[in-house]
Design a binder for these strands. Structure first.
Length: 502
RNA sequence: GCACAGAUAGCAAAGCCCGGUUACGCGAUGGACUGCAAAUCCAUUUCACAGGGGUUCGAAUCCCCUUCUGUGCUCCA
């Protein structure tokens, strides 16, 4: 099955075909950096990161552009509040963006253009729209006339122009626009505002025009994917369609409009006003970034996701399983190297129908990977793909511990398992940590934090062992509680006492 | 009001486009292991698809109607 992608404009999933063979031009609306990144941003950019990764894994070369709206009312307000330059506010929050997205293992886009860097392109596009009579100059700036291209109204949201025409248009009065549906291409500066010179006076761009100008600059008149949050469909993306298509005369400007679902908390949209708002950094105080990533990949990108504690706890457990399998295979590989076992795997041919233990298991793993690929090809169904990876992650340790295969086969299989995990859980889903971290998860003795308290813990455990031998359960449990206070969990397994550090 | 989504077993969430097959997971229950826990493993929980009509040999899946929920229509990922 070849990749199929859902397009918001045509409201159908269709075979993914790009304008240029082997290349994907992908533009995703970036943030307005007036405050630190929140979980909604994390969800959006993880979703498009997954899309980015899968396209590349499928053999396309992706040209990924994501903008920063570094001049805007909210940034200006923030700068005024703090008495600093607007660029300081923008830069600070852009730094925060990079920092948290890096920690969430979001690969960088190829370009991050900023509005303040494309002012000339915006001006020339605006001039062109005025010339074509799709836009007009007013006292307070330049406006796009929606009625100049009524057939483009509502193409993403299904709203009819008549319905909106009937709505109240009260705000027309306090601005230079002729019709309440019109939107600003250029806003003349009010006193004290940052501004750039233009043929219509000093001012700054309207919100929507930047994306049209940037995509035109980087990709030309038509491109493959335009992504962003569900909320951006209207008016932002519809405005872009007006601007770009009226300016170039080419339709459609975008082959596939892709919109990610929102993050909800307890069934409601996460928002500052509802008080259920999380910045990424807040969440990272509680959860490992890769766990958060896994939680957010646990829903299809177009569905809303309810970020509950249960979801996060589930993700934590599943993620641990994957990392554990990875660490296990890595440790066995290390041991095999030390034992002088040659890295010359002679694994049997994968075959689910085989009665040979290893051939059969390899067949199962191959099948899981194929199923994961099918899921991804079906409009990036990460939830489905994740369940395949989870199944594999559960299977791998069983094979590594199996007594049906000898040491040499185990070592050979460990190398295979590492590849298996890195190919999909790592490269595509972006869920694998660094190797040494994974090994420390499997073999806690490799964890430096554990080393630091090792002696103290062992001492207490020795005392507990004595108490247990004397059936002095009270003292034994006291010691266990004391260890628990140190963050140490004691497990009495059939193979002896094992302890883990939170 | 208009528009767009959605409603699936105790919870959570795929499947719906391309009607006929098991989701995956959590939880629960039983068992193994335990002094007790925790953790782990095994087994069971395998005919649920908002309601009502219709099409069909057969519908969660297609069509119509109804109800409810969320979101957008102003800045928003």
């Amino acid at each position: 099955m070849a990749l199929h992608v859902y397009d918001t404009r045509t409201r159908e999933k269709r075979l993914f075909e790009t304008a240029r063979t082997g290349e994907v031009d992908m533009y995703v609306c970036g943030i307005t950096p007036y405050s630190p990144s929140h979980l909604g941003h994390a969800r959006c950019y993880i979703a498009f990161d997954l899309i980015h990764r899968w396209l590349e894994a499928s053999g396309w070369t992706v040209n990924y552009v994501q903008n920063f709206t570094d001049i805007d009312d909210k940034i200006i307000n923030k700068a005024n509040e703090e008495g600093i330059d607007f660029l300081e506010v923008a830069n600070r929050n852009i730094d925060d963006y990079y920092e948290v997205m890096d920690s969430l293992n979001v690969l960088r886009a190829d370009h991050y253009p900023r509005v303040t860097e494309v002012i000339p392109e915006i001006i020339s596009m605006t001039e062109s729209l005025i010339e074509k009579e799709n836009a007009y100059v007013a006292e307070d700036g330049v406006w796009f006339s929606v009625e100049s291209a009524p057939e483009k109204y509502g193409v993403l949201t299904g709203q009819s122009i008549d319905a909106v025409r009937a709505g109240a248009g009260g705000r027309v009065e306090d601005s230079g626009k002729r019709d309440h549906k019109d939107f600003a291409l250029w806003k003349n500066a009010k006193p004290g505002e940052p501004s750039w010179p233009s043929p219509w006076g000093d001012g700054r761009p309207g919100w929507h025009i930047e994306c049209s100008a940037m995509s035109l600059k980087h990709f030309g008149e038509q491109f493959d994917i335009h992504g962003g949050g569900h909320d951006l469909r209207f008016p932002h993306h519809e405005a872009e369609i007006f601007q770009s298509e009226c300016c170039t005369g080419k339709e459609p400007v975008v082959r596939y409009w892709m919109h990610n679902g929102f993050v909800n908390v307890d069934g409601e949209k996460m928002s500052k006003s509802l008080g259920n708002f999380w910045t990424v950094k807040d969440a990272l105080k509680i959860y490992d970034p890769l766990v958060l990533r896994q939680a957010l990949l646990n829903a299809h990108y177009r569905s809303p996701i309810d970020l509950s504690e249960q979801l996060l706890e589930d993700a934590k457990g599943h993620h641990a399983k994957i990392v554990h399998a990875y660490g296990h295979a890595l440790v066995i590989t290390e041991q095999a190297k030390k034992a002088g076992l040659r890295d010359a795997p002679r694994l049997p041919t994968a075959d689910v129908t085989s009665t040979d233990f290893l051939a059969n298991k390899l067949g199962l793993l191959e099948k899981l990977l194929q199923e994961a690929a099918v899921a991804m090809d079906d409009d990036f169904n990460s939830r489905q793909a994740l369940s395949k990876v989870s199944n594999g992650a559960r299977l791998i340790p069983k094979i590594l511990e199996s007594e049906d295969i000898d040491e040499r086969d185990t070592a050979a299989f460990a190398l295979y398992a590492i590849d298996w995990l890195e190919e999909f859980a790592g490269s595509v889903l972006g869920l694998l940590p660094e190797k040494d971290i994974a090994m420390a998860v499997y073999d806690p003795n490799l964890d430096p934090a554990r080393q630091a308290i090792k002696d103290d813990v062992e001492q207490l455990l020795a005392r507990r062992a004595i108490a247990r031998a004397a059936k002095d359960w009270e003292s034994a449990d006291e010691i266990r509680d004391a260890l628990s206070d140190m963050g140490v969990t004691v497990k009495d397994t059939p193979d002896g006492v094992v302890w883990t550090l939170d």
